[in-house]
Design a protein around this nucleic acid. Structure first.
Lengths: 141, 141
DNA sequence: ATCATTGCAAACACTTTGCATACGC
DNA sequence: GCGTATGCAAAGTGTTTGCAATGAT
């Protein structure tokens, strides 16, 4: 899609990021694969079509995109950092069985306050853990 | 405190964990240092009084204590896994400046529901990020 | 020509594994 | 005595760093 690539170029430029080929590809991958990939997933996928593509570039780029506010990094306990191009506030649900990381609506009634105990809060991350729909159904059968 | 050690022995036995010297010390350290230490912090601190104490034991023990439900592991993006002996549900606040990890009351109105989007939720982790009270005050002066 | 970006190789930091020794019931 | 726990050394992962080659303006 020409469309998406143009959007990405815009987005990067708006955030003062020079839109190089590699950066566009990484951003595009994240926007098209909303399963919160790890750096390694991105590398492995893109390497196929870009033979000289390097892991260093993935790490460099992810770091830059985070700093400039184009991406969010997600904390999960068990494994590596995961990345999310969806900047609309939302939570995550991690299935402890299959490892899938789902998006979650921010639960109704969640406070929007920006100060708690005197601390200034800029960002919330909500991580729920449990058994996902699919694994749960399998367990019953 | 004899008192605390006895409590720990009880706690471990209740969870089917053989209360060895090392396990008791690790648990004790976590209960007495509620700053969510990393495995390395625990190792470094306890090594002083236990010359043969090994990191492997720390990792083994933390893993066991988690599995048996005596400890919780916390996800934070920037650094290693941190551990918490406080099993009462609560959130955390991480200061992006000084790195301190504070406890947070679970905000009023946070949903207690155990099913979302068909997923069975067993556990919530809430991680707020921002500028803590102390760093904020420093910035003003 | 200059400065930023890329990518290889090597270093690093955290965690896990294999296995021999020591401990507890 | 037997099974578990411990601890050393080595291997494994994920990430970062140093630096030379390349690319863009």
């Amino acid at each position: 899609m020409e469309r998406l690539e143009n959007q990405i170029v815009q987005l990067l430029q708006n955030k003062d990021i020079r839109p190089t080929q590699q950066r566009i590809e990484i951003m595009k991958y994240l926007m098209e694969h909303r399963v919160h990939p790890t750096a390694d997933m991105i590398y492995t996928a893109l390497k196929k079509n870009m033979p000289t593509f390097s892991k260093t570039t993935v790490y460099n780029t992810l770091k830059l995109l985070q700093e400039k506010g184009a991406l969010a990094a997600l904390a999960t306990v068990e494994d590596q950092v995961r990345y999310d191009s969806n900047l609309v506030p939302h939570g995550h649900f991690k299935c402890t069985q299959c490892g899938t990381l789902y998006d979650l609506e921010i639960p109704e009634g969640f406070p929007k306050q920006t100060t708690i105990d005197g601390h200034r809060v800029f960002e919330y991350q909500i991580l729920a853990k449990g058994l996902c729909r699919h694994c749960h159904m399998q367990e019953l059968s």
